[in-house]
């Protein structure tokens, strides 16, 4: 072989190798899409606690920021309830119960859910273990404490009706938003959130029996993410971004329990770690069962919620439950 040709070939080989090297390693990083950061307010269903751990994670881990969102998480207040805050534009997105949403819609407030966090409603009845009360049928002849004016008593009424238990045989009293009445003996059974009040019993050194009302056929999606129909139609990218980041936050929380609790405590400074740990660990099975995607909603569930509310005369007329929610964003996130 001619020496020049050899050298030329070597040069060609060398340039190919170096080109590959350059192309492989010096490829410019893909440009970051620089979108304008949107400031949005999210009104929570309750005060800051692990119930919203996914939101906190999304906030602290920058998942919202990745979606060009600056999210302001505002806790519930009786002065400005979540439904009103969203309906009147003080918050763009709200977290509340499906029942409240349907009720609002029945009053002509155009709100629409786009995902559910708590698929299983955490409303529960709880009793001291030594009472031997394990199921709603055991309530007969006992004093049951009810949190009036919330979806707790709503679910209780629905459950009792569903189970055909005669509430006349039960002494129903009004209690506060904690386990005080059960612990001081005022009630045999108290109602509340399975993720919250039973902890107080345990914290008081007592054993507790929990009766999840959803187990008795009266499940209602507890924490649904919603916005006005207008927001959903006109600012779908915002809603989708928020949902995507929130679900990511929840998945992260599920996989990283300790970190999720730590982050929650930065919001809920007045809570103890053990309280939040209890809250969080009991919440997870209600949020996620592994046999459907996070946030996913079922038509049957919405229908049942509608039916329960109708039965309870909360709704005074039938309505199309399909209008109350949209699967658009979930499908966008999971299927596409």
């Amino acid at each position: 072989m001619n020496k020049k040709i050899l050298i030329r070939d070597l040069l060609i080989l060398f340039s190919i190798v170096s080109s590959i090297f350059v192309i492989t390693f010096l490829r410019p990083a893909p440009e970051q899409a620089s979108k304008k950061i949107e400031n949005i307010t999210v009104k929570l269903k309750w005060v800051h606690q692990a119930q919203f751990a996914g939101n906190y994670i999304a906030q602290k881990k920058g998942f919202y920021k990745d979606e060009s969102l600056q999210v302001n998480l505002v806790p519930f207040s009786f002065e400005d309830p979540t439904i009103e805050a969203v309906a009147e534009g003080r918050a763009l997105i709200g977290i509340s119960g499906a029942d409240e949403l349907l009720l609002a819609r029945s009053k002509g407030v155009p709100l629409r859910a786009f995902a559910v966090i708590f698929k299983t409603n955490p409303v529960a009845a709880y009793a001291l273990k030594e009472s031997g009360i394990t199921k709603p049928q055991d309530f007969i002849g006992k004093t049951v404490g009810l949190q009036r004016g919330t979806n707790v008593d709503l679910l209780y009424f629905a459950m009792m009706e569903k189970l055909g238990i005669d509430r006349e045989k039960i002494n129903e009293v009004t209690i506060g938003y904690d386990a005080t009445e059960l612990l001081n003996g005022t009630t045999d059974v108290s109602t509340g959130y399975i993720i919250n009040e039973p902890y107080e019993v345990i914290a008081a050194g007592r054993e507790v029996n929990k009766i999840l009302m959803a187990d008795y056929g009266v499940n209602m999606y507890a924490d649904v993410l919603f916005a006005t129909e207008e927001t959903i139609e006109k600012r779908p990218e915002l809603v989708e971004g928020f949902l995507r980041a929130t679900l990511k936050g929840w998945q992260y929380a599920i996989e990283n329990e300790e970190e999720a609790i730590d982050i929650t405590l930065t919001y809920a400074a007045d809570r103890t770690q053990s309280h939040e740990t209890y809250l969080f660990t009991t919440s997870i099975p209600l949020i996620h069962t592994g046999d459907s995607p996070l946030g996913w909603m079922e038509e049957e569930e919405w229908d049942r919620i509608h039916d329960i509310l109708l039965e309870q005369n909360i709704l005074n007329k039938k309505m199309n439950s399909k209008d109350a929610y949209t699967m658009k964003f979930l499908k966008e996130i999971y299927i596409n």
Partner: peptide, 11 residues
């Protein structure tokens, strides 16, 4: 303990 529970929505 499971008696009385309603599994209506379970697959």
């Amino acid at each position: 303990l499971q008696e009385g529970k309603i599994k209506y929505s379970e697959h």
